[in-house]
């Protein structure tokens, strides 16, 4: 009896790669793809955006998927990161490599200040409030034009240097974004396996029951939000140095950023480690290809498809691709 009891909480004897091993494997495969297509700027661009959005969706996933807080305004943090890094470089020649972390930290602090009062809002009200906040950031970016260049935006000069995060060859950008995606994956894995990460899931499931077993609901949500915002802003900073032309519409348009991060995570599987990445791989290359192919015909065609995808995803892909796969192959949730 005793030996049976003690041996129970073991992993089922089944060949399963641990998450870390999977992350390393994915990183190697991706690096291989980068090397393979190193001569093809078009393919490299797709890879770069795929990795970037995988990371951004993953960042959203921490608070939106695991935490169940349906924010549609994460573009605010994305743009914040892009503008802090971009503007400091443009105005003060501050090295982007050094400003990335401070930008992430600022985003983390601001995110907690904003969300701490808004977390008390129920589901859809929270989502709408985040969209409103996104719009406020959009307006502020237009308003503080000496810092941000206003509606015209910032054109970041092309001075290649690794500490500027500006590269001549596209492969380096792709590798950089791959590194970002890996960073987000690792951060998610570590966070969801620590106590607060566990608590976050409890909070998502039932706040009252969570409080009854000693979980500080608001604090847990704030920690998750801070991490999520920090990682999102980090990606924004990298984005600024890749595209080197940021203006308010580019970073703050809901459909292109805030809503899209959620879309990718949802399609891939919110609340799972690899879901956001799967979503990005499923959508980003397709969208980039469509954008090139369709926009010759008429303006707006790509977004028609994006809109349709969103409707279909909401109706049929509730648990995302990963969720559907899990149901099909019956592995543990």
């Amino acid at each position: 009896m005793t030996t049976q009891v003690l041996s129970k909480p073991q992993q089922k004897a089944r060949l399963r790669l641990g998450p870390i091993a999977l992350i390393v494997l994915l990183a190697l495969i991706s690096a291989g793809l980068i090397a393979l297509w190193s001569g093809d700027p078009y393919a490299l661009n797709i890879l770069t955006y795929t990795f970037l959005f995988a990371g951004l969706a993953g960042a959203w996933n921490i608070i939106g998927g695991y935490g169940g807080q349906f924010s549609l305004g994460h573009g605010a943090f994305f743009g914040l990161g892009a503008y802090i890094v971009g503007s400091l470089y443009f105005n003060q020649q501050a090295t982007p490599l050094l400003t990335l972390l401070p930008a992430a930290a600022v985003a983390a602090v601001i995110s907690v200040l904003i969300s701490w009062p808004t977390f008390r809002l129920k589901g859809p009200f929270f989502a709408i409030a985040t969209m409103a906040i996104n719009e406020v950031f959009y307006a502020l970016a237009n308003y503080f034009d000496d810092l941000t260049g206003g509606p015209a935006g910032l054109a970041i000069p092309f001075k290649p240097a690794w500490e500027n995060l500006i590269f001549v060859d596209r492969s380096s950008y792709a590798l950089l974004m791959l590194g970002y995606m890996v960073l987000v994956l690792l951060a998610t894995h570590i966070f969801t396996n620590c106590r607060t990460g566990h608590y976050l899931v409890a909070v998502r499931e039932d706040e009252e029951a969570a409080a009854a077993i000693g979980i500080n609901v608001t604090w847990t949500k704030c920690v998750a939000m801070a991490l999520s915002a920090a990682l999102t802003a980090f990606g924004g900073g990298l984005f600024a140095m890749y595209i080197r032309m940021i203006d308010p519409p580019t970073v703050f348009t809901l459909a292109e950023t805030g809503v899209k991060f959620a879309l990718l995570a949802l399609i891939g599987g919110a609340g799972t480690l690899f879901g956001p990445m799967v979503g990005a791989v499923a959508i980003v290359p397709l969208e980039t290809y469509l954008r090139g192919y369709l926009s010759d015909y008429r303006p707006g065609m790509t977004l028609i498809v994006v809109g349709a995808v969103m409707i279909l995803a909401a109706l049929f892909l509730k648990h995302g691709i990963v969720g559907a796969l899990r149901k099909h192959f019956g592995s543990q949730p």
Binding site: G123, R298, L303, G307, A314
Partner: peptide, 21 residues
């Protein structure tokens, strides 16, 4: 409700761009 926001936002994008096209 969250999926309603999502789906109708998708519809927004779709209709907006359909008219644009």
């Amino acid at each position: 409700p969250n999926m309603q926001i999502f789906a109708t936002f998708g519809l927004l994008i779709l209709l907006e761009n359909a008219v644009l096209a």
